[in-house]
């Protein structure tokens, strides 16, 4: 982080030089004074306003906030699906566009977005085909990722033959199939019921520990954010901004019933306070 502190405060035009990639303190995502304004017919909408944020290698960072707070927009800026209006952002030490072209992240959308004419296997093969993996390599990766999301027996099924939770797991497998060490997840379990969601949260934590990926996770569920994350970014709307960043004190090993512990409830309380603070002027 030395390069950052050496930077002149007024100069925001240069990006910090990326440190070594295997460094645990390496910022996979680094945003400085990032703003994004949408021009709409009702005037400009400040989706993101002066966001400063670092996501470290191996972090599980949740973005939580009410709708309109820019959490999804921030994820889309990282993914180069939206472009920031001002400020800097680097992804793996590159611009988002370079990072996208280097295929350095996997993106999981709110909906599974599986192609209905492809079997689950073929859906997972889709990015591999586009990235020109060999057929044998594709087979190996399909098998590995299906095992990882517990869908080993469903490779030959079509998406409509699977439940919503299974479809979303398949879409996670698709995002894991190629070698991106950053996983961007935009409310992946938002449309699922509580029980399925608990189950998938547990699986996702296991998966994160096994794969050592860096995960950015958008949600509007406080328990989900607290249960999953090493850091929780609380955001508030109009303009979309970061109001609090909470470091989780929970251990890495997290059984589901950790959600009953005082420590968990304490963090959840702080998140709720942060959300309320961001909201108060609005009510």
């Amino acid at each position: 982080m030395g390069s950052l502190s050496e930077m002149p405060v007024a100069d925001t035009s240069t990006r910090p030089a990326p440190p070594a990639r295997d460094d645990q303190t390496f910022s996979v995502v680094s945003a400085r004074d990032l703003s994004l304004t949408f021009d709409t017919n009702d005037g400009p909408v400040h989706a993101l306003s002066h966001v400063d944020l670092d996501v470290k290698r191996g972090d599980f960072v949740s973005f939580i906030g009410p709708s309109g707070c820019g959490k999804t927009t921030f994820l889309r800026v990282i993914a180069d699906l939206e472009q920031a209006t001002s400020g800097q952002i680097s992804v793996n030490g590159m611009t988002p566009e370079e990072a996208r072209k280097a295929r350095s992240y996997g993106y999981v959308f709110q909906a599974p977005a599986l192609y209905p004419w492809r079997t689950i296997e073929k859906n997972i093969a889709l990015p591999l085909e586009i990235m020109n993996y060999t057929a044998s390599e594709r087979q190996a990766r399909i098998k590995r990722t299906l095992d990882l999301v517990n869908l080993a027996d469903f490779g030959k099924k079509y998406p409509w033959q699977l439940s919503g939770g299974m479809q979303q797991r398949a879409s996670i497998a698709r995002a894991l199939a190629f070698d991106a060490d950053l996983l961007l997840m935009d409310e992946p379990f938002g449309a699922l019921d509580e029980i399925v969601r608990d189950h998938l949260n547990e699986q996702l934590l296991k998966l994160w520990q096994e794969t050592q990926k860096t995960i950015c996770f958008v949600t509007h569920s406080i328990p989900e954010a607290v249960y999953l994350s090493t850091r929780i970014v609380v955001m508030s709307p109009r303009p979309g901004r970061v109001t609090d960043v909470i470091e989780s004190t929970l251990p890495k090993e997290r059984p589901l019933d950790i959600r009953e512990t005082p420590e968990f409830l304490e963090i959840a309380h702080r998140v709720r306070e942060g959300l309320r603070a961001g909201h108060s002027y609005d009510e």
């Binding site: 993914a79 996208r100 295929r103 993106y107 909906a111 977005a113 889709l126 990015p127 586009i130 990235m131």
Partner: peptide, 11 residues
Amino acid sequence: IQLDLMRTYNA
């Protein structure tokens, strides 16, 4: 969303 997916693959 399906087009965005292709974009994330740099297709």
